[in-house]
């Protein structure tokens, strides 16, 4: 069967168009025209060119070596200057620019040091309502070297929360040293000499063993040999509030 002439001609035209388009797309036009790479290069360049807001500790140190050394010797040694003073890149590149802020308000310190139950154990915290309410932190503490103004003499100076918890419990009248051995060094550098915790059940057994002579504790005696397996008492009972947290 012979195709009509007009169909053949149309077929040739279509074939030529297809060939031209394919030639354009795959041979003549460069692959980069369809590639995202040039866009990515431009984006990377745009990102890299963004202006700095934080200068970094090294830049602060160039002029403020004294403050850096004071901070480096103290408890705040690992804190970047701009944590408290705010973004200061403008000030670092031009000293006539607006000065970084001075953290003088209570809130500046309380952002880190207000008591929060989710904060890690041992992180220094105060209850803002108990600890010198209304007074600025900087009137007693130097932010660059924040040692307490005087060494605490009472355990409650630092462990106020435990002290207040214990005050409500049946153990209110027991002094801390009854159960903990506290070295003098702990008062000066707390983490370097941690107080002991009772290592044996006999510490609790002084009052809570059968045949106790203590009037109050004799109502809560247990047989040390059979009760609680191999655990030390405070692994289950919270001694600062034995009636709670069962």
């Amino acid at each position: 069967m012979k195709l009509p002439e007009q169909v053949t001609r149309l077929g040739i035209v279509i074939a030529v168009i297809v060939a031209v388009v394919l030639l354009l797309r795959f041979v003549i036009m460069p692959a980069t025209l369809f590639s995202a790479r040039p866009h990515q290069v431009a984006t990377v360049e745009r990102e890299m060119a963004k202006p700095l807001q934080h200068a970094g500790v090294a830049a602060c140190r160039e002029c403020h070596e004294e403050e850096f050394q004071a901070k480096f010797a103290g408890k705040h040694r690992r804190i970047g200057c701009e944590n408290c003073h705010g973004p200061s890149a403008a000030h670092a590149s031009d000293e006539n620019a607006e000065l970084p802020r001075k953290p003088r308000e209570r809130e500046d310190c309380l952002a880190c040091h207000s008591y929060d139950t989710s904060r890690p154990n041992g992180f220094p915290q105060v209850d803002p309502q108990q600890h010198k309410p209304g007074k600025r932190c900087v009137s007693c503490h130097d932010g660059h070297d924040p040692v307490p103004p005087k060494t605490p003499t009472e355990c409650s100076g630092c462990h106020g929360r435990i002290e207040r918890t214990k005050a409500l419990s049946k153990h209110a009248l027991l002094p801390c040293a009854d159960c903990h051995v506290v070295e003098e060094q702990h008062m000066i550098e707390p983490r370097s000499a941690l107080p002991s915790k009772p290592g044996t059940r006999e510490v609790c057994g002084r009052c809570h063993a059968p045949g106790s002579t203590d009037a109050a504790a004799s109502k809560a005696t247990v047989d040390l040999a059979s009760h609680g397996g191999t655990y030390v008492c405070w692994e289950c009972h919270y001694a600062h509030l034995p009636e709670g947290r069962k």
Binding site: V44, E47, M48, A49, K50, P51, L52, Q53, H54, G56, V57, H76, R78, I79, G80, E82, N83, P87, C112, F123
Partner: peptide, 23 residues
């Protein structure tokens, strides 16, 4: 977050790491 790409490519730390008080 870009890890502060404009900072890290200059050898600086990202802003969040720069200010983190407890590392």
């Amino acid at each position: 977050c870009t890890f502060c790409y404009h900072r890290i490519t200059k050898g600086l730390l990202p802003a969040c790491v720069e200010v983190c008080p407890t590392e």
